[in-house]
């Protein structure tokens, strides 16, 4: 599997890159890839079907100049900031029987990551809320999928040293939340892992056998997707 460790300059380019890699693999002209990227600024990312007015303190985002973008995968709204490690797995659905359906793909990837994190932390790690990794009752990683005919994008965030205190400023309590959240505000619901970023990247790369380091990405497709989608209010605030 290819390993692409590249953070592009803007949030829009980073979201576009995940989609472009998925499209390329789905069309049969791109390899399976594990990508890492880390935000260099604070911004908000809505899930595919989220309503901005329900999930965000939109006035606060506007006043603070915090950009709001929308991703192509499901799930809830997240705050992205330095201290978050994002990964994206682009996998062919034919690679493993588990990748054939939504539910089995969730279990396949999440169980691998749960086991890895448990080994690194030396503490019990649970999967809850379908695709959250949870340590001592607190969410430390959120994950989501986008499925096309031949390929799946499975991506998520590990909270390493994220500014948890900012979440309540920009995000409302989510319209949907798992039972284990039990009504807790953001700062009491999530926690940082405190793992070294380079160590975690190396372990995840080893887990997925991503040993072919790549230094190219579909730049033309990324530029097109930024221009026609991720830079547009019509996409980012469509709901």
């Amino acid at each position: 599997m290819l390993l692409l460790d590249v953070t592009l300059p803007t949030p829009a380019e980073n979201l576009a890159c995940d989609e472009a890699l998925l499209d390329q693999c789905d069309a049969g002209c791109g390899d399976e890839v594990l990508r890492f990227w880390e935000p260099t600024s604070v911004f908000v990312v809505l899930g595919y079907a989220n309503r901005a007015a329900s999930e965000l303190n939109t006035d606060t985002c506007d006043e603070s100049g915090v950009p709001v973008l929308r991703r192509i995968s499901g799930g809830g709204t997240v705050l992205q900031a330095p201290g978050c490690l994002n990964y994206a797995l682009v996998l062919r659905t034919s690679t493993a029987a588990e990748l054939q359906t939504t539910g089995t793909t969730n279990r396949y990837v999440m169980e691998k990551h749960r086991f890895l994190l448990e080994k690194l932390l030396g503490a019990k790690v649970a999967i809850d809320g379908v695709t959250d990794l949870v340590v001592r009752g607190r969410k430390v990683s959120g994950n989501a999928q986008r499925r096309r005919a031949n390929a799946v994008l499975f991506h998520g965030t590990f909270l390493l040293n994220a500014p948890v205190e900012l979440m309540g400023k920009y995000l409302r309590m989510p319209s949907r939340s798992p039972a284990y959240r039990d009504g807790r505000p953001h700062e009491e619901f999530v926690a940082n892992l405190g793992i070294d970023c380079e160590v975690l990247k190396a372990e995840i790369s080893r887990l997925w056998k991503a040993d072919q380091r790549a230094n190219q990405w579909p730049e033309v497709a990324v530029e097109r997707l930024v221009r026609t989608k991720y830079s547009l209010r019509e996409w980012n605030l469509r709901f």
Binding site: G47, S73, G74, T102, N106, A149
Partner: peptide
Amino acid sequence: ESCAVVESVKAASDVY
């Protein structure tokens, strides 16, 4: 051609 999208269990899926 992709013509619709459905979401379930944190996954958005294309419908053809």
